[in-house]
Design a protein around this nucleic acid. Structure first.
Lengths: 187, 187
DNA sequence: GTCTATACGACGATAGAC
DNA sequence: GTCTATCGTCGTATAGAC
């Protein structure tokens, strides 16, 4: 793989685990086995340009993976539960969750600039749209689909934080069991 | 107010907005109008000791406020919706949410030490217990109360992140509208 | 209890050799 | 395209005067 892609890949994982401020360039260089000269050749505007590239990479990865899962299951409920199951498996194997989440970056909101914030915002919206689209296909009204998609997004992101904090996969598992209830239409 | 309490109060707000790594001691000193000598007198072990004090302060504040709200409403549903309404009001007035959340600290998980992680974990558990207790009083089984409390905690924490990222109070408002659905017993 | 002065390492970033 | 060397700033922390 080319150096630029390697940097983006490694930096993305580190940013997801420790946040933007929490990762120094030195740490990124170390895991990549390169030096500053190389990094600044590929990202002349430094760390912030690298972050934007990582966010774009996350957007592609998350969108692709999620759409892939959603295309393999008939209903939004099954797809969402499969998605959570994947998160749980990853967490139990690696002790951390690197795909599907970027809360560590978003959480530093007060120190982030607008382009970064906008990228995060549009990524959340994109995820919600995938849920929403499937829910409409399931027969939900546009409004109900929107609300449910938002709740799913929020509870999964919150569930990931609970799992990481408690060092247990139980929160996400419990949330998965609650999905049918969340997605049951009002009678 | 005494200096130590002032430092804790100001530092807590800053940590909640920017995360632990995102806030420098200099910034804390500035908003407090003090100097290093004073800070290190009150917190001889430096920034980490201050963080632990802030977490304890958050635990007291969040527990007190939440229990206060929950004592003023008959059902968990009403209480939770009132709590979210308060978050929304705060957010619309100040453009940020400083109480009720500590996701910015939790998000840096990979760089935090165990005592900090344990403090965060026990705080989440405490919040869940307040919800859970009220739900049991509402007639929920212990298991259903536990699951619902966890979902409420996760979706509110996730909802706060969505609001901050999108610079809109709509996510929390939508989640509030979904609460009745979440708390409806299986038939 | 609060101040000033200072140590020293880590940070992001740049210049120039190869 | 990658390296080494170096800069200036900011980070946390300490020592000692008042």
């Amino acid at each position: 793989m080319d150096t630029k892609s390697l940097i983006i890949e490694q930096a993305t994982a580190l940013f997801q685990q420790k946040g933007y401020k929490g990762v120094g360039l030195t740490e990124i260089l170390k895991v990549c086995g390169i030096t500053k000269g190389s990094l600044y050749h590929h990202f002349p505007n430094g760390k912030e340009e690298l972050l934007m590239a990582c966010l774009q990479s996350m957007e592609e990865a998350i969108t692709t993976d999620t759409e892939d899962i959603f295309s393999r299951y008939q209903t939004a409920q099954e797809a969402t539960q499969a998605l959570i199951e994947k998160l749980v498996t990853d967490f139990e194997r690696e002790g951390t969750i690197t795909g599907y989440t970027f809360s560590s970056i978003v959480s530093e909101i007060a120190s982030l600039n607008d382009p970064v914030l906008y990228a995060c915002s549009s990524l959340y919206t994109k995820i919600e749209e995938i849920y929403s689209k499937k829910l409409v296909a399931d027969g939900f009204s546009a409004e109900a689909a929107h609300s449910s998609a938002l709740l799913l997004t929020a509870s999964i992101e919150g569930g990931i934080m609970l799992c990481l904090t408690k060092k247990s996969s139980e929160p996400l598992k419990t949330i998965s069991q609650m999905i049918p209830k969340i997605l049951k239409e009002f009678s």
